[in-house]
Design a protein around this nucleic acid. Structure first.
Length: 199
DNA sequence: AGCCAGGCTACCG
DNA sequence: CGGTAGCATGGC
């Protein structure tokens, strides 16, 4: 197995410390303290839905609108009519689907009562697939879960580490078997992958 | 002007 | 079951 660890060192050398979750946050390189409270946690969770197959810019605009409407609040989202919610997040694309997904994840989030969810129960929420579940665990709950996305797959393809036939869990295992389970490391590694692959 | 952006579900064979 | 159409805006 080509050294995943040395790949990390190379990327860090090339790009420097990045940060965490790039949608609408004044994060600083090397600062992994966010989310600092439940409101920020919930905002990150909304961001994971809004950014599905969508540019961060468009997802960020939708998040800004939600913020302006004071809707970064589970109770308010649940009280907002789905049609209206869809209009509010229009710029994120797929707004009808995502309005439904936002409702679903909000109901689930509320039912947790502050508890950290498991991956399987997250996957039980309609609108939450593997990448979204893992993004929620890593970025909202600081769990040491490696997030696999298009950039991750493209990088491993480029490096000849995978053939392209591997599934999500197999790709994820390549990272978790080679690295200590540290959410800051997983967070930074993924940010570096994006810095490397985003043209 | 068409292609692409950190996916996911439902449905098809 | 593995494969894929549909969902949609905004930036280039």
């Amino acid at each position: 197995m080509k050294k995943i660890r040395s790949l990390y060192e190379e990327l860090l050398e090339k790009h420097g410390l990045q940060g965490w979750w790039p949608v609408n946050n004044s994060y600083k390189p090397g600062d992994y303290s966010t989310p600092r409270n439940e409101k920020e946690r919930y905002e990150v969770i909304l961001g994971t839905i809004l950014t599905q197959n969508t540019s961060w810019e468009n997802a960020g605009k939708a998040l800004n609108t939600l913020r302006k409407e004071k809707l970064i609040d589970p109770e308010k989202i649940m009280r907002t009519e789905e049609k209206k919610l869809a209009g509010t997040i229009k710029s994120a694309g797929y707004y009808n689907q995502k309005a439904r997904y936002v409702k679903n994840i909000t109901e689930f989030y509320d039912s947790l009562k502050g508890r950290t969810p498991g991956r399987e129960e997250l996957l039980g929420v309609k609108g939450v697939g593997k990448e979204t579940a893992d993004s929620i665990l890593l970025y909202a709950y600081k769990e040491p879960v490696f997030v696999v996305d298009k950039y991750t797959e493209r990088l491993l393809l480029r490096e000849g580490i995978i053939s392209g036939k591997e599934n999500y869990d197999e790709i994820q295992r390549i990272f978790t078997e080679s690295l200590e389970k540290d959410y800051k490391l997983f967070n930074e590694f993924h940010a570096l992958i994006v810095a490397e692959m985003k043209k």
